[in-house]
Design a protein around this nucleic acid. Sequence first.
DNA 1: ATTGAATTAGACCATTCGGTCTACTTCATT
DNA 2: AATGAAGTAGACCGAATGGTCTAATTCAAT
Lengths: 212, 212
Amino acid sequence: MRPTKMSEEQVLRRLTEVFRERGYEGASYARLMGATGLVKASLYHRFPGGKEEMVDAVLSRVDREFLEYVLRPAHEAGPPPKRARQIARRLQEFYGSGTRWCLLDTLTLSTSARTLRHTRGSMEFWITSFARLGRESGMSKAHARRRAEDAVAAIEGGLIVSRVMNNRRPFLRALATLPGRLTQDVERKSRRTGPSTTSASFAGKDRRSQQL
Amino acid sequence: MRPTKMSEEQVLRRLTEVFRERGYEGASYARLMGATGLVKASLYHRFPGGKEEMVDAVLSRVDREFLEYVLRPAHEAGPPPKRARQIARRLQEFYGSGTRWCLLDTLTLSTSARTLRHTRGSMEFWITSFARLGRESGMSKAHARRRAEDAVAAIEGGLIVSRVMNNRRPFLRALATLPGRLTQDVERKSRRTGPSTTSASFAGKDRRSQQL
DNA sequence: ATTGAATTAGACCATTCGGTCTACTTCATT
DNA sequence: AATGAAGTAGACCGAATGGTCTAATTCAAT
């Protein structure tokens, strides 16, 4: 077997960058070729399914990295707040302190149903991991779930505001408040404080996966 | 003057929908023509500058609507919490309960610097309007600003999570917590309660508009 | 050294892209 | 009824798009 000029891993990393900052339609072959240094036939040789398959591979690789590195503390032992803080640090690294966008955002605009499903699975796993910390902190299942969703939303929103305003602070603040969101029932104290004042539900009872 | 077959307003509305859900690169002329029912020459007649000009017009129109309708309560008189709740209701309407994406998200992927500037201005105005409510609720200028940014982030993030998970609740929850975010120093009580326990800063002092 | 599969170069294809142009309609004003 | 600008139809353009194909390399294994 002839070895590849550029490792699969490195190719995927470069493809990831293109999809991350241009989206699916913006990731033309010209750009993909430029980023990888591979000519079109080589790309098709490695990804016979074309862009669709590339996106799939890219997402899968990022999934793995996100799970094995960023979210890992959620699945290990130890005090939840400490683990949450570690996750926050790794998120900062993962998103380049707010200068790198999220594929779950950029890849969910005019893509195939397949890609949509994939991203949904990725985010579901992310949320579930976050919720674990809430549960271990004594939250009800439903409450932990809500908190986890809101935490993901805070991060995604922080990235957007940071991108549009060209200021990384909103994202960094989302990270700073993350441990509280995930492990405290009353959030948003600058130092983790006090017990839990139960907070009521907000948008009605939470039966997941309904319409629209 | 011969009257237009389709009013400028209506054309803009339809163009908006295309840009909103496909982004800039995804908004091909084929789709723009299909959505408006106008042939290419007609589009160019109305927007001699092509897509760039369309995006500009679309953003401007949405800016106006957003200001005059959604954000208006922020610039009127009355008790801040009440005004905040009104804004939340109008945001729900504006974003179709979480089924309509935000142009500030979809239009900031591989677009011109010009468009980037425009969106930044739009979001800046949004944030400033939000911050007004915080100030009137007794927050410091810097604190109100941070809260406003975080509130916008919560909404944008809610939209993303709702879009990816195909579940509108995360967005609706972001709206439910909005009044607290904007007018209370300790947020996230289900009913507005208590005075303000001052919360400290999170991600360092806030000097706006620095690098990246 | 030869083999033979993995890999790459690059020509090639039909389609779509954003964008321009001229000629024809349409209709409020006069 | 004639005018004349506003608006529309649709042919047309070169470039870029996603995608395919054949022929040539390259190199680990024999």
